[in-house]
Amino acid sequence: MKKFLFILTLVLVLSGLFTATTVFAQDGITDDEVNAIAKQLYCPVCENTPLDVCPTEACRQWRELIRLQISQGMTEAEIKQYFVDNYGARVLAEPPRTGLNWLVYILPPLFILAGAFILFRSFREWTKPQIVEAGSSGESDAGEASSPSDTDDYIARFEEEVKKRK
């Protein structure tokens, strides 16, 4: 029954579209206008291919469908909704912001915040016993130290280093 209803709707929609073709002229619609919408949609059959660049015959027909829909005066949002209704949410470049899909948008920032928090706390912990060896930064590695704190100091140390290596 469900299948029958689906086919019936499909036939109605398609016949509606084709009769519409004869009524409305599509000439005014440029490829750029079609692509502007197709770009935001993903090919319902190929993996991860935007509809505007997908080379398959099916996609070409879908682009013509978009052209037709524009010529019928459908808005961008309506056309996108049409594709979502017929082919599922996967035709959108991003999951719609509903239900479980919120995880897509919430989890990474949470993770990053947690990372930043851990890092910040570790910094706080590390920097506490600051009094110890305050002047030891110089000992770290003369060859690699690039402290620009004092250019003259840097050059002096550099010269010393060069002499050593000669």
């Binding site: 035709v91 470049a93 991003e94 999951p95």
Partner: peptide
């Protein structure tokens, strides 16, 4: 998403 809701989604360049 497919596993828990049966819904296929695309996570594309804008994300």
């Amino acid at each position: 998403s497919e596993l828990f809701t049966g819904q296929k989604v695309t996570v594309g360049p804008p994300y």
